[in-house]
């Protein structure tokens, strides 16, 4: 099992690896190895490789030259032309630093961001990165060059979570700055004003961008399993609260579910893919979601 590349999809395993670009590669390789006979294999304009014909393959792609030489049917595979432009918007606000089991939301989000970037670059798509909290902390223009990954992962690694999340101005601004239609991937815990968020997302949609929202949450945030008397220290300049968690649990979960429901509904309304991730979830989910979105986009 040790050499099973799929193990790198498990956040627990990933947490032991420090270098983000290595992580990204391991994740994607693990993911690809699971995509045996997957419909997501890309087709490029440029020739990539030959593959033996199996009945059912499109006969248009049979390389007749090879047939002439070897008397065997080979299918010609092409590298698809890069025409998808993606921006990954990663939330690096203070709230992303929360963790209950060692993997912070930001760490998880970083893995998602890096592995998506790697996957995109592998598929000749161009990818850009935006790190934000209450303002844009870093903006890397999109590029399809494989070396772009290094830049992206390095930028993510050197960023410390701080500041409040604010989406309204930033997203509006970004929507204006990213002129070409593309795929906007937002990785955040979305601890912002929901109405502001939805307005901002609508702005992206208005600019004809595809939007995927990866809602990264910690398991504890969803279940609130605390029992002992606890002093809750608020991140993002929230005041602290001294409370008996059992007495608060019901109301908290109610509030939290209402928030999630509202975000989900808003996303559905604007045809935005909403994916909830918990830091203990396998990264496969995020990558599959992206590929599914990309399929829809290229067909």
């Amino acid at each position: 099992m040790d050499d099973d590349p799929r193990k790198y999809l498990d956040p627990k395993v990933l947490a032991k690896i420090s270098k983000l670009d290595l992580k990204a590669r391991l994740i994607v390789e693990g993911f690809i190895s699971g995509l045996h006979k997957s419909p997501f294999h890309g087709f490029s304009v440029e020739f990539a490789q030959h593959r033996e014909y199996v009945p059912g393959d499109d006969t248009r792609h049979i390389d007749w030259k090879v047939y002439g030489k070897s008397d065997r049917f080979y299918i010609k595979q092409y590298e698809q032309e890069t025409n998808l432009k993606s921006y990954i918007l990663l939330d690096v606000s203070e709230s992303m630093a929360y963790t209950s089991d060692g993997m912070t939301k930001l760490g998880y989000g970083a893995c998602v961001a890096a592995s998506l970037a790697y996957l995109m670059l592998q598929q000749q798509d161009s990818v850009g990165l935006v790190l934000f909290d209450e303002e844009v902390r870093a903006f890397i223009r999109d590029s399809g060059h494989p070396s772009h990954l290094k830049l992206i992962t390095h930028k993510i690694e050197e960023t410390q979570p701080e500041g409040k999340t604010k989406v309204r101005g930033i997203f509006d601004d970004l929507a204006e700055r990213i002129t070409r239609r593309g795929l906007i991937i937002i990785i955040s815990d979305l601890f912002v004003n929901v109405d502001d968020l939805l307005v901002a997302l609508r702005h992206f949609r208005h600019k004809r961008h595809e939007v995927i929202v990866f809602h990264v949450l910690d398991q504890y945030e969803k279940t609130f399993p605390f029992t002992d008397l606890t002093l809750f220290k608020g991140l993002e300049q929230y005041p602290q609260l001294f409370a008996e968690p059992r007495t608060l649990r019901a109301n908290y979960l109610e509030e939290f579910d209402a928030f999630v429901r509202k975000v989900k509904q808003g996303c559905r309304q604007h045809a935005i893919d909403y994916v909830q991730l918990t830091t203990s979830d396998s990264l496969e989910v995020a990558l599959s979601t992206y590929l599914a979105a990309r399929m829809a986009r290229t067909k």
């Binding site: 929360y98 008397l229 002093l231 908290y252």
Partner: peptide, 21 residues
């Protein structure tokens, strides 16, 4: 005096819940 300290992100909901509670 003997309590756990948790640095908490989803404070908004907790505060709302606490206000209600």
């Amino acid at each position: 005096r003997r309590f756990r300290v948790v640095t908490w992100a989803a404070m908004e909901f907790l505060l709302a819940s606490s206000r209600r509670n």
